[in-house]
Design a binder for these strands. Structure first.
Lengths: 134, 134
DNA sequence: GTGCCACCTGTAGCGCACTACAGGTCAAAC
DNA sequence: GTTTGACCTGTAGTGCGCTACAGGTGGCAC
């Protein structure tokens, strides 16, 4: 079964899982960063290892990492992503997860609005330069 | 004459200029950051000093700093802001300024679009948590 | 004339999010 | 059996954008 993870990540994960390099390529997160995320407790569990001690990522791991990417790329801090992971490990924390996510959403929305305000000013400046160069 | 600089910054600058603390309060840029920007060559000229060697900001300085704030808050690097300042010091660089600004605009737009894509996914997650908590 | 305070310069330090080794293991390829 | 290469752990280093001193000056208030 193939699944959309990030909008652009659709992949069939084999039963033996994916290597760290494959996950890096699929998600755009660097290999070192993936190990760093794990060290920092951002993954739900330490990624399972094969007989040789190498990480093998399965579908759930990949989906979670794609979630991290979305949070990260919208500016959530490592600390808050860790908080989210901590909550998701425990039952009955749905309210807190919702709060964390909702606060994040508000911050992102505010940021987008500010950016668009600034963008209009920048575009006005561009228009003036274009006008003066004709 | 009172003037809008940042949308939220409308101020009558007295003839003797404003102190660094006043500019900091008006623009939201910290005092140390203002000095840092100057050191880094982000201002068009070194801010003029009074008899005691203190910075006195006039309307043009304030307007430029507000411009920096917009660029900065839309993610332009210090290096690119310096490039912009360097260009604005020289005549006949209008084409390059336009290019720099246009490239920045493209990057910001791409970033906003990506953020909004992620935001939709985050909102879907929020909706699911809200549904499950009823 | 002595506090006091806002400001100055110069330099060092910090927080964040990675990123880059060094030195080692394991399994398949030759 | 040795070479290769992807991976491992642990720790140190990096780049960015500030931020925080330390030590000093100038000017006004009392």
């Amino acid at each position: 079964m193939s699944e959309v993870l990030l909008p652009e990540v659709t992949v069939e994960v084999p039963p033996e899982g994916l290597s760290i390099t494959e996950v890096s390529r699929l998600t755009g997160v660097g290999v070192e960063a993936l190990r760093y995320y794990e060290r920092e407790g951002l993954l739900l569990d330490p990624t399972p290892r094969d007989s040789g001690g190498r990480r093998r990522y399965h579908e759930g791991d990949l989906a979670w990492i794609c979630g991290l990417v979305m949070l990260r790329e919208t500016g959530m801090s490592i600390a808050d992503m860790r908080r989210m992971a901590d909550l998701c490990r425990r039952d009955g924390t749905e309210k807190e997860r919702l709060e964390l996510l909702t606060r994040h959403r508000e911050r992102v929305l505010a940021e987008v609005r500010r950016t668009q305000r600034h963008l209009r000013a920048i575009e006005a400046k561009i228009t003036r330069y274009e006008a003066s160069s004709t």
